[in-house]
Amino acid sequence: MVFKFTIDNVLNKYVPANRLNRLPPWIGRFLGAHQAPPRHDYYIWLETLIGTFCGLSLIEGIFKSHTAFTSHNAPMIIASYGASAILCFNASQAPLAQPRSVFMGHFLSSLVGICIQKLFSLSAGGREHYWASGSLSVAVASVLMSICNCVHPPAGASALLPSLDDQIRSMSWWYLPVQIISSLLIITVALITGNIVRSYPVYWWTPAPLPVPKPTSTPLEKSEMETTADAPSSSITYVPSLATIQIAHDSVLVPEELDLMEVEVEWLDSLRMKLQRLHATPSQQV
């Protein structure tokens, strides 16, 4: 289902429109500011193989070496990044694999997991019921990711590990910076390998159109800006008695009776944005 409220309802009015197209092409390409042509499956399979291997190997290589985290029992890799690698390098066009979901999903889930585990650790009874701590952590993290519009399924394991893994528990708050570094590393590799054959990310913040600020502030333009700012963040339009889904570069029409999930709405919006780029209109995604 589509949630009526997410954090985007509040923040999107303050988020600037994408300006990656102003960067030099060789920089913008590796930030997803290009339209990838169709490729044969063999190239995509090879990219997936190389990206997954390099992303996980980089994380393992860094934490296997002597770092500031060595004395804090940091693992060679947090297990949840195996699942993140599948999303980032195989399903890189899905909303769940975008940088916002990867970074915020892992961090928020880790924060929830370590906080709830710390609360259970305050009493002997709580320490005997870490199974409940783990279940509660994943449940709270799932709701929080929905509110923050950064759902990333592998992050559920990041919320669970502080309660169930003794090594992670012994890291205490050092678990959070390890998560931050791991997320940034796997996103960096995805930006490099994912933009050779395909295009990654589809968006940085949201696929929904964002208002572009105008350089002047005449009364007419000011009224137009206010109308744009008050418009819904999604370009989805529900039409009664429509039997098909119609995607154009400026709108998406769906049947009124169709109940879309939030990820499905984001996916339709991302397709619209691709059509918009084909029409050579200024990019409105972040």
Rank of each mutant, 00 (worst) to 15 (best):
I236D: 03
I187T: 01
D230Y: 13
I86W: 03
I78C: 01
H66A: 13
P201T: 02
T216L: 12
L164Q: 07
V286L: 13
S172C: 11
P255C: 04
E221R: 08
S133M: 06
P162H: 07
I196M: 02
W204S: 00
A83R: 08
A280R: 14
L31F: 15
V263D: 12
R127V: 10
L184V: 09
A141I: 04
P25R: 15
S172Y: 15
G105C: 00
P209L: 03
R100S: 03
I7P: 00
T188L: 13
E256A: 12
I114W: 04
T52H: 09
N21H: 12
I187V: 07
Y175M: 01
P177I: 01
G61M: 10
S80C: 06
S163C: 06
V112L: 00
P240V: 02
I86Q: 04
D165H: 01
L242H: 05
A157I: 08
C115T: 13
L220T: 14
I168Y: 04
T227F: 10
D41P: 09
F30R: 02
S283I: 15
L122Q: 10
A229E: 12
W174C: 10
R198L: 10
A141H: 03
N149F: 03
C88H: 04
F120Q: 02
S235D: 08
E128C: 10
A83L: 08
V189E: 00
V2K: 10
D166M: 15
F120E: 00
P207V: 02
V202K: 11
P99H: 05
E60A: 14
S121N: 11
M104L: 15
D259M: 09
H40A: 11
N149P: 03
D8W: 06
A91W: 01
P154I: 09
L108K: 02
S283W: 13
L278A: 07
R29F: 05
A124D: 11
L49F: 12
F63S: 04
A68V: 14
S234P: 01
L220R: 13
E226C: 13
N149I: 05
V102A: 02
V202C: 06
P207T: 00
A74N: 03
Q117R: 12
S121F: 05
P282R: 08
S283D: 15
L46G: 04
H152K: 00
L260P: 06
I116Y: 04
K64Q: 12
V254I: 00
A229H: 11
I62L: 15
E60T: 13
S123V: 02
P255W: 03
T193R: 05
E256T: 10
M261D: 15
L210S: 07
S65E: 07
N73Q: 11
R39H: 12
W267P: 00
N195G: 05
Y203D: 06
S92E: 06
S223K: 14
S163F: 04
D259Y: 10
F3N: 14
S251R: 14
S137Y: 05
L220W: 11
R29A: 10
S121K: 09
L176M: 07
E264H: 09
E262T: 15
Y200V: 11
R22M: 15
G55K: 05
P37H: 01
R198S: 11
V239E: 04
I180G: 03
N18H: 12
L260W: 09
P240C: 03
P213N: 03
L210G: 01
A97C: 01
